[in-house]
Design a binder for these strands. Structure first.
Lengths: 133, 133
DNA sequence: AATGAACTGAGAACGATTATCATATAGTCA
DNA sequence: TGACTATATGATAATCGTTCTCAGTTCATT
């Protein structure tokens, strides 16, 4: 595993670093011009391997990638699908819990599912009713 | 969304409940006889919707499902791919953190990645060396 | 320039999941 | 029970994210 970063991989990294959010491979592809699909996937793989980028499984169809900066957890809204970052670091606690079982944590992914702030607001506006068919 | 459970869905649930582990749709399919692929996926979807089963994104190619019992986190080994349960409940903490941002957590998924107990043991036996090509 | 290693991208291939649809089953009411 | 309707089933096709293949290109080194 080489730590060198090719031109294209650097461009992919730039997209993730600038946007500072969670992008699918397709979204990265869409926000770049003249780059092949395979190249984007390869770049994301490589960046993940060398630890500059994290591949997240947020329960959606496709994987999402984010540039690694600080430790935070992800909140995925059940209704609108939006992903929000929540600045909290639980790595230490998770590491301790795993240590008790003999496992060594490299990194941890915390994903919360529920109703986001915006959707809660919308929800409150709508009068309660049985689902109409 | 109906809460009724069909015969086949009940059978799928039984598999998950008995095995008490994380199974892919394909694994469920393989451990049953005379059931169609679509039916397994539909059953898993339905069971997930009515809250008896949880669909987990552990970062593997396919989703895994588990029968919901207690709250625990998942440890996925980078080397052997095994999934271990770790009995710890962080839901309260995660819920609080999300609450601060206005989000309402329904459930949370904690996945730790690293080297599992068994693989650490193997690792320790092998003398350190540069990767030979 | 010459050599070989690594990178690229178009398109094929793959694999997990979902959609389709004709048939079968379950549920309901007369 | 029989008739009728809604729902479930499963074989198969279709979809879609991702990976593979391979010929051509770029890069690094000499």
């Amino acid at each position: 595993m080489s730590v060198r970063i090719s031109q294209q991989a650097r461009a992919v990294l730039a997209v993730l670093a600038e946007r500072r959010c969670h992008l699918t491979a397709e979204e990265v592809l869409a926000s770049m011009e003249s780059i092949g699909t395979a190249t984007v996937y390869r770049a994301l793989d490589h960046l993940t391997e060398i630890g500059l980028v994290r591949r997240l499984a947020l329960g959606k169809k496709s994987a999402v990638y984010e540039y690694i900066r600080d430790s935070h957890l992800h909140f995925v809204c059940n209704r609108c699908g939006a992903v929000h970052d929540i600045q909290t670091d639980m790595t230490g606690m998770i590491r301790e819990a795993a240590k008790c079982c003999g496992h060594e944590v490299e990194w941890a992914e915390v994903t919360a599912h529920g109703l986001c702030k915006d959707c809660r607001a919308v929800w409150d506006e709508i009068p309660a009713q049985e689902s109409v068919q």
